[in-house]
Amino acid sequence: MRVALFITCVNDTLFPGTGKATVGLLRRLGVEVDFPLAQTCCGQMHLNTGYRDEAVKLAGRFAETFAGYDAVVAPSGSCAAMVREQYPHLDIENIPKVYDLSEFLVDVLKTTDVGAYFPHKVTYHPTCHSLRGLKVGDKPFTLLENVRGLELVPLPGAEECCGFGGTFAVKNRDVSAAMCADKIGNVMKTGAEVLCAADNSCLLHIGGTLKRQKSGVRVLHLAEILASTEEGAE
């Protein structure tokens, strides 16, 4: 099986740690993963902001870049959903098979215990596009439950949007901030040290607010928790 990593433009530029964690985790599980250097962006930002033509170009580029791979793993629910849900509407041919990280682990590798160790209290935000777009269901929860030392606490109102929504966060800043405030209120209720999600875009928004408020809660991508081991424990 030829597996490629689609890092996503946001992770590539701002969160290389998530990419390194994904590569480390997959290698630990015996998967050799390629990183086609021609990759850039899936086109989601352009499409969702109303720039369809640019998005179609980027989508076409994406399909070419990842042609020939049996599976493409993306550590981002919304980018994976963009390819799977939106590309068909953009008349893209030969759409590569893209999986979000938890889908790839559970559905393709058939593993729910990745041998991770992370001795912290964690709560999980399922993010809208993983939840309602990809319908990943309880896959990330199962993966987290099997992490040694990890205490998973349920997040009240977990299925509600955090208010990121790409350019929505800027165009409708007040509503976005109000949604985030409620999300953070719920995170604080859990008493968790770490808020985890499978999408760094949402975490950029929630994490940026948590930091501004000096809340002391850290945000971490699912890949980084699943990549942690006893040897490399922080």
Partner: peptide
Amino acid sequence: PYASSLCGA
């Protein structure tokens, strides 16, 4: 059309 975060609910 921009009055939405596209959360899909």
